[in-house]
């Protein structure tokens, strides 16, 4: 059986940033997934959700949970990432002052995502948006 959910994320809305990740955490707890695995999944998802809020105009999070894995696809409409390799370098950041005031924007998000996922694919088109695909096995 596969459980699927879609969540909408609004760019710039820091008060609600993390609410989708919170819902996914509750869902995974209900499914009795190993707490260590849940922590990896929700940390990656939360960082990716914060990225949409911090950088994009709006986005969508689609998740699918099967007995062996969770697939998370985050698609946003936004400025895109001109150089993904550079963006992956820890410490590189284009975040605004507002984002830093929220406790993020130190250029650690993408490396935190990479550390907490089993599979990660980022594709982006400048001026259109970014797609982040993550898979974690249970």
């Amino acid at each position: 059986m596969v459980v699927e959910h879609t969540y909408h994320v609004k760019g710039g809305d820091f008060t609600h940033a993390g609410s989708a990740s919170s819902k996914v955490k509750k869902l995974l707890k209900q499914l009795d997934i190993d707490p260590k695995k849940i922590k990896n999944i929700v940390i990656a998802l939360y960082e990716a959700e914060v990225n949409i809020v911090a950088h994009a105009w709006e986005g969508e999070i689609w998740i699918a949970i099967s007995p062996e894995k969770i697939t998370m696809v985050l698609t946003d409409k936004g400025p895109g990432i001109p150089d993904i390799e550079q963006a992956m370098v820890e410490g590189f950041s284009t975040a605004s002052k507002e984002v830093r005031e929220m406790g993020f924007g130190a250029g650690m998000g993408l490396s935190n995502i990479r550390r907490n996922t089993d599979e990660l694919k980022i594709t982006s088109e400048v001026g259109t948006g970014t797609k982040v695909e993550m898979v974690n096995y249970f």
């Binding site: 820091f14 940033a17 993390g18 990740s21 922590k39 939360y46 914060v50 929220m102 406790g103």
Partner: peptide, 9 residues
Amino acid sequence: TQSIRTAEM
């Protein structure tokens, strides 16, 4: 709220 969300995750 991000400090609370971070703690939650």
